[in-house]
């Protein structure tokens, strides 16, 4: 779907976030970017979204940049707007009226299990539900590429597991490509078809790990040999990446 070649990113203040990042993203895969915090994962993700240009190197799209959905670490909702209006935002910015957008908004809320909450305001919802709204908003335009930046990092373990499972189901239903940033080895293995391990700052990909398992997973997967092996290689790769920095 897209290729990053030799991407460097140096910020205006001189901080270098990425150095020689090479990464291929395949159509329809679930790809995790795994690395210690501050290694440039968010920076890479933002550049893929078109928020910020590489200082050097190039991002090449096979068929142009598709519709992109973005989910941040926090839900990042507009507190003054209802759940409905928050999910409406991308459609509204694309010029769709409330009436035109309404079926798509309802559908997006259904997908994340929030039917009946359209009129609620963000502060009336729990952290997990707010994150669901954020995901619904990202899905409203039916993006071919979904970018998620540590979306569940601020949630409790149980909510997080539930959202992990829901995310896998959603990806299956929508057939989108997902790039998922995380610093949790276990989360990345549970979710991904492939994991790109980042070195400490300035970041680049030091290892890629394939997780050979069916796309839809459940608790049994957590107890499987494949899971244990993938966790072990990811952990080793992470240690190697941090050790060499």
């Amino acid at each position: 779907m897209l290729t990053l070649r030799g991407v460097d990113k140096v910020f205006a203040n001189g901080a270098q976030a990425l150095a020689g990042l090479d990464l291929d993203v395949r159509e329809g895969e679930f790809l995790s970017l795994l690395g210690p915090s501050g290694c440039g994962k968010s920076t890479a993700l933002r550049m893929i979204a078109g928020l910020g240009e590489p200082t050097r190197g190039a991002i090449a799209w096979r068929a142009g940049r598709p519709e992109v959905g973005f989910v941040f670490q926090d839900a990042v909702l507009m507190p003054w707007a209802s759940v409905f209006d928050n999910v409406w935002l991308p459609l509204r910015l694309a010029g769709q009226s409330r009436a035109q957008a309404s079926p798509k908004i309802e559908a997006a809320l259904d997908l994340v299990g929030l039917q009946g909450f359209a009129r609620a305001y963000p502060r009336e919802l729990s952290g997990g539900m707010r994150m669901r709204v954020s995901i619904a908003r990202a899905l409203a335009m039916r993006p071919a590429l979904l970018l998620m930046d540590e979306p569940f990092a601020a949630l409790d373990e149980i909510t997080r597991q539930k959202l992990n499972d829901d995310l896998l189901r959603l990806k299956q239903e929508l057939g989108a490509t997902v790039i998922f940033v995380t610093h949790s080895v276990f989360e990345s293995v549970y979710l991904s078809d492939r994991i790109a391990v980042f070195s400490a700052r300035p970041g680049r990909v030091t290892a890629e790990i394939e997780v050979a398992a069916p796309a839809l997973r459940n608790d049994d997967f957590r107890l499987s040999q494949t899971y244990a092996q993938a966790c072990r290689s990811a952990t080793d790769a992470l240690h190697a990446a941090m050790g060499e920095a």
Binding site: A49, G50, L51, V68, F70, F72, V76, P90, L93, A94
Partner: peptide, 9 residues
């Protein structure tokens, strides 16, 4: 982040 989101769209 909301400003980024507006820019994204």
């Amino acid at each position: 982040n909301l400003i980024d989101l507006f820019e994204l769209y």
